[in-house]
Design a binder for these strands. Structure first.
Lengths: 194, 194
DNA sequence: TGAATTTGTCAACAGTCGTTGATATTCGGA
DNA sequence: TCCGAATATCAACGACTGTTGACAAATTCA
């Protein structure tokens, strides 16, 4: 009676959550190929067959593990002068805050050798980065500017979360904001040479 | 008598080269895990056992395939005002010129899920990017500045060669130089906020 | 020519992978 | 309490992996 779901209190809906958590952890560490269903099951202290029972295949499990909300309306920039600052702050909030971050790292780590993940990453930056950038400057030019912004953001993520390049890992959030913010500002608004 | 090697004219040294070529192509497309020895052998029209015969394991084959010279003394920047320009031009010459480029793409694509490749990438940017950056500005600060430069360069490479993000692929070399050059200049010299 | 060495072919090994079905265990409701 | 349904276990499948050794063909050198 203390259930929150209307129909299914479902005792071992908990198992499903355990599997998903284990899957996220291993996908983050080793990517799609590197994390086997048996490894995930072992980490969840459960039989490999249960993984298939609940999620129907490894692909579906991966899709669920890489799923995240990524609410976009948070970046509502009012003045053009601070758009670079707003983008990098939002980036940090997303990537360094827990829930969504793991989904992004999963995608990025698997994107290099998994076409589904790669397409998902392209989607994210086409539907999230581009609209924000498009709101400022020449709309016909938005694609190129968003591409440059994406290159810097993805590079930062790659160095900091995947490769763990020491000097990039050592950067504080404030340092990132102060250094990368103006660059994104330049890219997003099309300042400098064309 | 027309041999160039002193001792081994070695008729099927050619086979070894064929295997290496096939390996490079498949490693570039699918990364370390995605390219199997059987696939590589099939592409080289040869028996899988020969791959092991000539290179002793898949790891050694990968190491050989990802090997490239990357002659560093080319970037001798004379004046500080053009270091950003020099870095991005050198980057483009390396990545868009054939022989070394494939090695870099192989490394980058596999780095996300292969620790050997990841370490190699860290090495490249620690030994190639950092010294160039360190020559200008505060030496104590060189690590951070080189890290920022690396984040932009690796992001550009990821978007252009791995993810193939359409707007980034569409950029001409001149556009890249004009847009990214000043950013690298800013990062490398430590201009702007600290 | 014949012998020796290189080069290539074939089948199989032990292991891992995702996935499946039959079977056992546990649990909620009568 | 007992029964049916949900939940979990187990063994095995076919396919794939890197790697190995025994054997055949080709080439080289005398």
């Amino acid at each position: 009676m203390s259930t929150n779901q209307p129909k299914k209190p479902s005792k071992s809906e908990r198992t499903k959550a355990q599997i998903l958590e284990a899957a996220r952890e291993l996908f983050v560490q080793h990517g799609y190929d590197g994390a086997s269903i048996r490894d995930i099951a072992a980490r969840a202290s459960i039989d490999p067959a249960m993984v298939i029972r609940y999620f129907h295949s490894k692909d579906e499990l991966f899709a669920r593990a890489a799923l995240f909300d990524l609410r976009l309306p948070e970046t509502q920039v009012t003045d053009q002068a601070s758009i670079g600052d707003a983008i990098i702050r939002r980036f940090l909030r997303i990537w360094e805050g827990s829930p969504t971050a793991t989904g992004m790292v999963i995608l990025l780590r698997s994107a290099a050798s998994n076409e589904f993940a790669a397409e998902k990453v392209r989607d994210v930056f086409a539907n999230q980065v581009r609209p924000v950038v498009a709101a400022f400057g020449d709309p016909a030019d938005a694609g190129r500017r968003a591409g440059l912004v994406a290159s810097q953001l993805l590079g930062l993520a790659t160095c900091r979360y995947l490769l763990r390049l020491p000097p990039v890992v050592a950067l504080s959030q404030d340092e990132i904001i102060k250094n990368v913010g103006p660059v994104l500002q330049r890219y997003a608004t099309g300042a400098g040479e064309i």
